[in-house]
């Protein structure tokens, strides 16, 4: 199975490298956000103290935005396209484990996401005065969170792609969902400034919880007691999506 995984990984990486629009959203857009927000608020002190600048809170938000964008837009667009063109049908008839292709597809998106994260983080450190706050434990938990966020967003994107019929419908569903996340997670507007009802909706979506935990880890302010509900949400969502993804199969009927 490792051979098939590597074969698909190589092919998907080449295909992704040939898609300028996807690369723009995965690499260029996070850099633009870093430059724009870093230039505007990067050097300002934050409520966490003088040692934590605006740029230190922008980078983790950017990471969550990137992973959500990849999972909710990149993954479903790719899967739906493969499904409609019957390429997925061809792959599934190959003598491989059912999940091999999907795992390699997610691996490619994750690989490029990591490269993109490194790139805009480096820009934040080099040009906008971002500081490394995490200790080794924060960093290890952050890595676990990064994987969990990938599973959550890629999982939701795959479920939409596999369960919703038609590329137009699935693209509308993913875009609508992604926009809802953007406006309720604190990326576009602070959650506290949103109406009470919208705040309640924000708690139902994964992006809000991911940003809360990622930001606190990134600036080394992570305390389990203060974030237990967010951690619980992320852990439950990761577990549920892993189980669901393990069971769901493409329906051709």
């Amino acid at each position: 199975m490792a051979k098939s995984y590597i074969a698909f990984f190589k092919l998907e990486l080449k295909v992704l490298a040939r898609e300028p629009v996807t690369l723009f959203f995965m690499i260029i857009l996070p850099v633009i956000l870093t430059v724009v927000f870093g230039g505007a608020f990067g050097s300002e002190a934050t409520k966490y103290g003088d040692h934590v600048l605006g740029i230190d809170t922008i980078v983790p938000v950017n990471i969550v935005f990137l992973l959500a964008n990849v999972g909710l837009m990149g993954v479903p667009i790719t899967v739906v396209e493969l499904k409609e063109q019957e390429i997925l049908k061809r792959y599934i008839t190959y003598p491989i484990n059912y999940k091999t292709y999907f795992v390699s597809l997610f691996s490619v998106f994750s690989f490029v996401s990591v490269l993109s994260t490194l790139l805009f983080s480096l820009i934040a450190f080099l040009f906008y005065g971002a500081k490394w706050h995490m200790n080794i434990w924060d960093f290890l938990i952050f890595l676990v969170l990064y994987i969990a966020m990938t599973i959550i967003f890629d999982g939701i994107g795959s479920l939409i792609a596999l369960l919703v019929k038609g590329s137009r419908t699935s693209s509308m569903v993913t875009s609508g969902f992604f926009l809802s996340l953007i406006f309720t997670s604190g990326v576009a507007l602070p959650v506290e400034s949103l109406p009470a009802v919208v705040q309640k909706i924000a708690y139902m979506f994964p992006m809000y919880h991911c940003i809360e935990v990622a930001q606190m880890l990134w600036i080394s302010e992570f305390r389990f007691t203060g974030l237990w509900d967010n951690i619980l949400y992320i852990a439950a969502a990761t577990a549920a999506l892993m189980v669901f993804l393990g069971r769901v199969k493409v329906k051709w009927d």
């Binding site: 295909v15 040939r18 063109q85 019957e86 390429i87």
Partner: peptide
Amino acid sequence: SQQNSLRRS
């Protein structure tokens, strides 16, 4: 399969 299931890129 019935369709031309090739990756265009």
